[in-house]
Lab assay of single mutants.
Amino acid sequence: MSSSSWLLLSLVAVTAAQSTIEEQAKTFLDKFNHEAEDLFYQSSLASWNYNTNITEENVQNMNNAGDKWSAFLKEQSTLAQMYPLQEIQNLTVKLQLQALQQNGSSVLSEDKSKRLNTILNTMSTIYSTGKVCNPDNPQECLLLEPGLNEIMANSLDYNERLWAWESWRSEVGKQLRPLYEEYVVLKNEMARANHYEDYGDYWRGDYEVNGVDGYDYSRGQLIEDVEHTFEEIKPLYEHLHAYVRAKLMNAYPSYISPIGCLPAHLLGDMWGRFWTNLYSLTVPFGQKPNIDVTDAMVDQAWDAQRIFKEAEKFFVSVGLPNMTQGFWENSMLTDPGNVQKAVCHPTAWDLGKGDFRILMCTKVTMDDFLTAHHEMGHIQYDMAYAAQPFLLRNGANEGFHEAVGEIMSLSAATPKHLKSIGLLSPDFQEDNETEINFLLKQALTIVGTLPFTYMLEKWRWMVFKGEIPKDQWMKKWWEMKREIVGVVEPVPHDETYCDPASLFHVSNDYSF
């Protein structure tokens, strides 16, 4: 037999072997998808029940369902290793196997995995149920939502704001400190077992692309791009910072340095994350009609249902689908009040099986009107990829998912749209002054938050990498806050605090 014939037969044999492996992989994935749908849905439903009704029974049910899901994933991840990716030609099959071969938290021992889940659930519970009591009246206690958040959004009393700011960190942050220390250790162990340098590197892996249509993007490039983007917006932020400082000097004349940092408790919310609520103090042309339409919403008797129905109309107007019937029947759109304790931070849920929901303790404000559009943007994205195989139902990356939500809320905030839905009067006219007011309001929300987020994530990356010793977490946190964000702590904090974890995203294990 000629050498060319042998070569042809060899190629046929290799192709047949690849085809056999690929067919086996497809069969394996079909079985996995069928089983995963049910187990993931049960786990998601148990998590939803806990988040909307925080009880010991629900946390136990959530843990049990989560353990079943984790055990299943660990088993299936091991089985998926049997299919070598280099022998799979079908890109859809390869991407699913690649996702499943990534072990995630299931790489930890059973004891450590359970401990990590306990830590995460405990931190979430402390954050959502933590109360601050009035020292003069111990029976008068406030949760973060709505009590403390209400103070931080609306109060102009310097000392009341300081009390709310400090009490939240003292009551909740200190409880979270030992848990967060354990969390860092276990998450790093999980990341390294998955061949990442640390948990920050694991997060950045979400943005990594290897040879898809000839395109590559590394975790290191992400760090470079983040640094570059921050340097680009820094001059604009510094101008905004100086303008806000001048306006705060008028409101709090004896508390603000004309050349120094801004006190952290005066920036519009509990964390200084969004400066939106400073608009009334900083509006350049106050004689113009108010483009913050909160009062109009209240006057027109809007409620949470109306807010979300208007958001749905907005999405339908640009060619996107209505929310499902189940969305309206199962979402929690208002604070249950004293009936039950719930996690009030707005979140969009894709539970699986076409079950999409939003959890939000909606208030009738323009801020929540825009947040509703943001969260519904997440749901629209979830619905758009719902037909994909189970392992591919995700956003391109976390940042893109947020961008989908944010672009919709930005569009909904324009005076033209607000006028079209009757929240600005029919005779409202846009001119240079109203446009400047609008742009300032947008800058308070968007530009003001960028250094906050950059600095927070930089601190977390450094902590996970071990570049900040545990006994210097708070020292470095406030050094970076002053240097990068231009914000100063109103009272000193020692290493018993854990100020970063006083933010939902940190205590609940979300990256930005």
Rank of each mutant, 00 (worst) to 15 (best):
A46E: 03
Q24G: 01
M62W: 09
Q102G: 12
Q60D: 10
W69I: 15
M62Q: 06
Y50R: 03
L79N: 05
E35R: 02
Q60S: 07
Y50G: 03
N61G: 12
S19N: 07
E22H: 04
Q42H: 15
L95Q: 09
D67Q: 09
K74M: 08
N63F: 10
E35F: 01
N90E: 15
V59G: 11
Q24L: 03
A65L: 09
T27M: 15
L91K: 12
Q42D: 00
M62I: 06
I54C: 06
Q24H: 03
N49A: 14
W48R: 03
L73F: 07
N33I: 02
E22A: 03
I54R: 05
E35K: 03
Q42R: 14
H34Y: 02
D38F: 00
A71C: 09
N64P: 03
K74T: 10
E75A: 15
T27Q: 05
W48E: 00
Q102V: 11
A46T: 05
N51W: 07
H34T: 07
N61I: 13
L29P: 00
N33H: 14
M62R: 09
T27I: 07
E35W: 04
Q102C: 10
L91G: 14
K68R: 13
A25F: 14
K74L: 10
N33E: 14
L29I: 02
T20S: 11
A65C: 08
K31S: 01
N61E: 13
L79A: 08
V59P: 03
K31P: 00
E22G: 06
E37G: 02
E37Q: 04
A65W: 15
Y50E: 04
N90S: 15
Y41A: 01
E75L: 14
Q102I: 11
K68G: 05
W48A: 00
D38Q: 02
Q89I: 15
V93I: 10
T20W: 02
P84T: 07
T27F: 15
K26I: 15
W48C: 01
N63K: 13
Q96E: 08
K68P: 01
F40W: 09
N90P: 15
E56P: 12
K68C: 07
T27V: 04
Q76I: 15
N49T: 12
N49K: 05
D30G: 02
A71M: 07
T27K: 15
E57P: 04
Q102Y: 05
D67W: 13
F72W: 14
T20P: 06
E37K: 03
N63D: 12
F72R: 06
N90T: 15
N61T: 12
L95M: 13
L79M: 14
P84I: 01
N90G: 15
L45V: 03
W48T: 00
K68N: 12
Q60C: 11
F40Q: 13
N61S: 13
T27S: 14
E57I: 04
E22P: 03
Q60H: 10
N51Q: 05
E23V: 10
A46I: 03
N61F: 13
K68M: 04
K31E: 02
Q76T: 15
A71W: 11
N64E: 04
K26W: 08
Q42S: 04
W69H: 03
A65F: 10
V93R: 04
A71L: 12
E22T: 14
N33A: 05
M82T: 02
Q89W: 11
A65P: 05
V59R: 13
E57G: 07
L79Y: 15
Q89R: 14
Y41R: 15
Q76C: 14
A46P: 01
Q60R: 14
L45Q: 01
Q96A: 04
E23K: 14
Y50I: 02
I54Q: 07
I54V: 11
N64S: 11
Q89V: 12
V59N: 12
E75W: 15
N61V: 14
T27C: 15
F72T: 04
K68E: 04
Y50Q: 04
E75I: 14
N61H: 11
N51A: 10
E22C: 05
N49F: 01
Y50F: 06
N64V: 11
V93Q: 02
F28A: 01
F40R: 15
E23L: 12
Q98S: 14
K31R: 02
N49H: 05
D30I: 15
D67F: 11
L73A: 10
Q24C: 02
E22M: 04
I54T: 06
P84M: 04
P84L: 05
L79G: 05
K31F: 14
M82S: 05
K31G: 01
E23I: 06
L45K: 01
Q98N: 11
Y50T: 03
L95I: 07
P84K: 05
K26C: 09
L95R: 13
K74C: 07
L95A: 13
F28N: 00
V59D: 13
E56W: 10
Q98H: 11
N63H: 07
Y41M: 02
Q60W: 11
E23F: 15
N51E: 02
D30P: 01
D67V: 09
V59H: 11
Y83D: 01
E56V: 10
A25C: 05
E75V: 14
Y50K: 00
M62S: 07
K26N: 11
W48G: 00
E22W: 02
Y83A: 07
T27E: 01
E57F: 05
D67C: 11
Y41T: 01
Q76L: 13
Q96P: 14
E22D: 13
Q24W: 04
L39H: 14
M82I: 06
Q60E: 12
A65S: 02
A71D: 09
Q98A: 10
N49G: 06
A71T: 13
A71K: 13
E56H: 05
D38T: 01
K31W: 15
Q24T: 15
L79V: 15
I21N: 04
L29S: 02
E35P: 01
A25P: 01
T92C: 15
D67L: 13
L29Y: 05
S19F: 14
F28R: 01
M82A: 02
L73M: 09
I21W: 01
L91M: 12
Q98I: 13
E23H: 12
L95C: 08
A25Y: 02
E56N: 08
D30K: 01
Q96F: 00
Q102K: 09
Q24A: 01
D67Y: 13
K31N: 02
Q60F: 11
K26Q: 13
L39P: 11
L45W: 01
L29R: 00
I21C: 03
H34N: 04
L45H: 03
Y50P: 01
Q98V: 14
K68L: 04
T92I: 15
D30Y: 02
E35A: 14
Y41V: 01
V59M: 13
L91D: 13
N49P: 00
H34R: 04
Q76G: 02
H34I: 02
K68F: 04
Q42G: 05
E37C: 00
Q42T: 13
A65Y: 10
Q42I: 15
K74P: 03
E75K: 15
A25Q: 00
M82R: 14
N90Q: 15
F28W: 04
A46K: 03
A71G: 12
M82Q: 02
N90H: 15
K26G: 07
Q60Y: 12
N64M: 10
Q89C: 14
N51D: 06
A46M: 05
P84C: 04
N51K: 13
Y41D: 01
Q42M: 15
W69T: 15
L91A: 14
K74E: 07
L91V: 14
T92L: 15
M62C: 07
Q76A: 13
I21L: 03
D38A: 01
E23P: 07
E56I: 07
Q89M: 08
N49L: 04
E56L: 10
N64D: 12
E23T: 14
A65G: 03
Q60G: 10
P84A: 08
Q24N: 00
A71N: 08
E75D: 14
N90R: 15
Q24D: 00
S19P: 15
N61L: 13
M82G: 14
A71H: 12
Q96G: 03
T20I: 04
E57V: 05
Y83C: 13
A46S: 06
E23Y: 08
E37M: 03
K74Y: 07
A25V: 15
W48D: 00
W48K: 00
E23R: 12
Q60P: 03
D67G: 07
N90V: 15
Q96I: 03
Q102H: 12
Q98C: 14
E57M: 04
E37N: 01
Q76R: 15
T27A: 15
Q89A: 14
Y41W: 00
A65M: 11
Y50M: 05
Q96K: 04
P84Q: 06
N90K: 15
N49Q: 06
